[in-house]
Computed example of a mutant assay.
Amino acid sequence: MDAERPVGVGPATPADTESVRRILSESWGGPYVAVHAELIDASAQRALLARVAGRPVGLLTYRAVSGTEWEIVTLDAVEAGRGVGRALLDGLRAEAAWEGVTRLWLVTTNENVRALRFYQRYGFDLVAVHRNAVEAARRLKPSIPTHDDGIAIRHELELELLL
């Protein structure tokens, strides 16, 4: 049974292009993510893919900001509640430590309380609130919704994990 099989994590390869594009399309409406007044092609970034029995169940995309700092661009667990997100972060953390990276960081939005809880439980710390930053993001990607679960989507929250 898949529910009992372990989640494996490894770098996405060119053979995984379709899986990466599918996950980004389902989660983000396409490969582009608008954040901190920038439109980022997540499909063009380095990526880790989570698999169960060879089947893709999650994706983490990231980019080097400097030699010691990486930004997590996207994190998607296709199957929630089975440790996919944690496995992807564990994989990135191990890779970052190996490459001498001392800071991982990411941005989420104010209404995404589930993600905020997840990241803080993992050890990320809230370090900045960029008020009304989603307005600029919407100019780059108009498909960003204005509300989710009754909460207005307005602000970007920056979290970091020091290694």
Rank of each mutant, 00 (worst) to 15 (best):
H130W: 13
E135K: 14
G123S: 02
F118K: 00
P142F: 06
Q120K: 02
A128T: 15
A136Q: 10
Y122R: 05
F118R: 01
P145C: 02
L116P: 11
Y122A: 09
R121F: 01
F118I: 04
A136G: 05
P145I: 00
H147I: 03
L126E: 04
V113S: 14
R117Q: 09
R139K: 15
H147E: 13
A137C: 10
L140A: 09
D125T: 15
V134L: 03
E135Y: 07
R121W: 00
A137N: 14
P145H: 03
N132M: 08
I144S: 01
R138L: 14
H147D: 09
V113Y: 03
L116F: 05
A133R: 14
Q120N: 00
V134A: 00
V134D: 00
L126Q: 03
G123D: 00
G150A: 08
N132W: 05
N112H: 08
R121S: 03
R117G: 02
L140Y: 06
H147M: 09
A136S: 12
V134Q: 00
G150K: 09
A137M: 04
D125C: 13
L126W: 04
E135H: 05
D148S: 08
D125L: 10
R114K: 08
D148M: 11
A133G: 11
V113I: 15
R114A: 14
P145G: 04
A133T: 06
R117A: 06
R131A: 11
I144D: 00
R121H: 04
R114Y: 01
F118P: 03
F124K: 07
R114S: 08
T146W: 11
F118H: 01
D125I: 12
H147T: 11
P145N: 01
V113P: 06
L116M: 10
R114N: 02
D148R: 01
N112Y: 06
N112C: 12
V127Y: 02
P142Q: 05
K141V: 12
S143D: 13
V113R: 09
R117L: 03
Q120Y: 01
T146Y: 12
R117H: 08
N112L: 12
G123K: 02
G150S: 10
A137K: 09
Y122Q: 05
L126V: 07
Y122F: 13
F124I: 07
A128D: 15
L126K: 05
P142C: 11
A128S: 15
V129W: 10
F124T: 07
V127F: 02
P142G: 07
N112Q: 10
D149N: 04
L140F: 04
